[in-house]
Every structure is written in C-alpha cells, then in structure tokens.
Design a binder for these strands. Structure first.
Lengths: 202, 202
DNA sequence: CTTAAATTGTGAACAATGTTCAATTACACT
DNA sequence: AGTGTAATTGAACATTGTTCACAATTTAAG
C-alpha cells in the first residue's frame, strides 16, 4: 500500500510528534525508537524518514514544543502590577514545577547534545532565547542602575543556577529530595543573589 | 586460548578502566563500546563481562575515579590561612576549570542516570558526598551564626548553581561562551549570593 | 610423566537499534 | 483501460549490549 494519501506530510509530522511525545512522557527517552513511533501512527519506519531527517531531528522538534509550552507557562497570567521580586521568584517556581511535573520531556532538552557536524539550527536557538528573555525582562526593574550587559549576566547566572538546582534535584544527585526542597533551594538562591545584586549596584 | 593468566581479574579491571577512560576523553561517551574497550586491552567482550556486570557498571567506576580526581584537585594545596571567601570562590574556579579541561569525563557523570531497578550504590554516593562536603566546610566559616541545616542548604544551592552555569556554558545552551565567561558568571553568582547569605543572618 | 579436574577466556549468536533505498502499490490523468 | 508519477513499504545493513556453550590451558592427582 503506497500513496494512501490518508494524511499529508504535515499531518504525519504532527501525528509522529504527538506519538513520540507520549512515549517520552510514559517511558522516558530510552523508550523512544523509530519503529515504535511509526507503528503508533500506523506507518512504517521508512515514512518517518521522509518527514524527519533522523531521530535527532524529531527530538529537536519535540524540544521546541517543550520550550514553547514552558514559555507559555512563564508568561501566562502575567501580573505586571505585582512586586517584581516576587515575579522573578515566581518564574523560578514555574520552571521547577514544570520540570517536576514533566521530567522526561524536560530532561530531553538537556540530554540532547548537538553533534559537531550539524549545529543547533537557528529556529531552535531562537526558541531557547525567548524563554531566557522573560527572565531578563523580569530582572531589569530590580536593578535599574545596572548596565544591560550586567543585567544579562545576572539573568544568566540566576537562571543557570536554578537549572542546576533542578537537575541535581530531579536526578537525585544530592540525595532523595522532593519538589518542595528543590523549591526551597531555588528560593534561597534567588533571594540571596538578588540581595547582593540589588544592594551593591553603583 | 583460555586461562592465559597473563593478568589477574584485578589487573584486567584496571586495564579496562584505563582504556575506557582514554576512549571517553578522545571520543566522548558515544565512542565507548564494549568491543572497543575489550580489543584495546587485548581481550574479547566476554572477558569484560566477567569483570564488570555491564557497561553501566564500568561507567560508574569511571565516574568514581573522576570524582576522586575532582576531590583531589579541590583539596590540593589547601591554604587554610587564606580568606575564606576567596577559598570558596577558588573552589568554584577549580570545578569549572576541571569541567572545561576534561569535558567528556565530566559530562559522563551527569549523563548517566541510575536505572530504576539498580539504584546508585552506596560507595558511589559516598564519593559524591565527599566532594560536596568540601564546599560545605569551606562555607561554614563565612556565616558562623547560621544553623547546620541552613549551611547545608546554602552549600547545596551554591554548588548546584555553579554546576548549572557549567552545564549551560559547556553545552553552549546559552550561546557560544568560553571558559572565561563561565568563570565570570560563577563568580557573580557566588559573590552576590554570599553577600546576601552572610549579611542577612540573624 | 600422564591424566583428570578445575578454571579462564572465547566468539558465535541473539535481539534491538538507526538508517537506507530498490521495489511495490495506489492514485490521477489521458 | 492504460500509463506515469509519487508515496509507502519493509527487507537489508551495520552496530549495539549481553549471554553462554564450548574450548583451551593451568593445576592437581595419581
């Protein structure tokens, strides 16, 4: 059976992504195989390779979706009137909760290393930057006298810091801790960092 | 040819670890295969499985060695007379330099996720804790009035933070930055965090 | 020194993986 | 109906981790 025309390539692409995501959520990245995804959508491996260059390509697209959902959560219900410090801390909470509620999809973003020959595509970098920009914008009002580059650096340090806590927390590298403890750690990091960052500005 | 008795199992174990580490250093974890390690030491796959339970087991032992080397670097040339704040910042520098100078072996520690059925062995956790303890001990004199649990939490937050910066720096997730930039970010994190942590104590 | 037993290493075999591509099938148009 | 085109297939290939019946060699016994 060929040329079934049941679905356009665009449709197959979306079906494959949805099926792949379900596998990831349920079984983690180890459970993801080309054959499984294909059979799940009623096609065969060959078809998958008509739509994606390879599994890495498919994973990149899953990750893009994950970044979109994270960005959505971080900008959802934005309350600009709120005290900015709380808003930043809230961002950290959102990130950590996101990672804990969907650990497999979250982990997939960082398990994937860009191979040397195929560098990370621009459209992907752009999505990652979009998430990061939210942090930067939220930080800005907290230290108005800092230069743009100082702000960028601080946002970077803070966000990477939260991320590190998240990683060590979820992968249990520092003992058996729940989401609550991770939230505590992150809050401690943000509050103390901000205290130094805001007070010591020129 | 069996029972060659050229080497004891202990010796084979060490040779295999050395060969595997060389492969990791040169090619990264993707290049590591059972057959490669075996042929490198002049034995066959079967023999490898007499000495290690499986590849995960072998990797755990490599990671243990890596942790030992890191611990060595962190406690080497200890100068207790030095200002403690500088000492802590120095620890961060050591960690970041370690990661950059040996990215493949460093990454291997975090790529490896403990499988559900075989939890991380105690001897491994102990080695990880040993590294972490150095941070805790160095932090203690900086905030004498804090409780033990507060100190532990702060050390955790700080260390995880440094680690996060390291990850995003090395994997280039936040653009193309060199070791110097990563060092800057880490220093920013530590200085500002410490400022808040030391000043605001009861 | 010969022979039997114990032990140590082998490598063929298996199931699974990502990936490719000649062959096959179904559709659209004349 | 017939013909060409394009979509889909799935068998095939190279690798992977892992196992285990067997073979080779050392050791012990007679």
């Amino acid at each position: 059976m060929a040329r079934r025309n049941d679905h356009s390539h665009e449709e197959i692409r979306d079906m494959a992504l949805a099926a792949a995501e379900q596998i990831i959520v349920e079984q983690g990245s180890d459970g993801l195989t080309a054959r499984k995804v294909a059979s799940e959508i009623g096609y065969t491996v060959g078809t998958l390779y008509l739509v994606f260059a390879n599994l890495d390509d498919l994973i990149m697209h899953i990750n893009a979706r994950t970044l979109d959902r994270l960005h959505q959560l971080m900008t959802d219900g934005e309350t600009p009137n709120r005290i900015e410090k709380d808003r930043l801390i809230q961002l950290g909470q959102i990130y950590i909760h996101f990672a804990h509620s969907d650990p497999h999809r979250w982990a997939l973003i960082f398990e994937h290393r860009p191979s040397d020959d195929r560098p990370t595509p621009d459209w992907y970098i752009e999505k990652a930057m979009r998430v990061f920009a939210v942090v930067e914008e939220t930080l800005q009002p907290l230290a108005p006298r800092r230069t743009k580059s100082e702000l960028s650096q601080a946002a970077c340090a803070l966000w990477a810091g939260i991320h590190g806590i998240c990683i060590l927390g979820i992968t249990q590298k520092l003992g058996d801790v729940g989401e609550d403890s991770v939230q505590e750690l992150a809050k401690s990091l943000m509050v103390n960092y901000l205290s130094g960052f805001s007070n010591n500005q020129a």
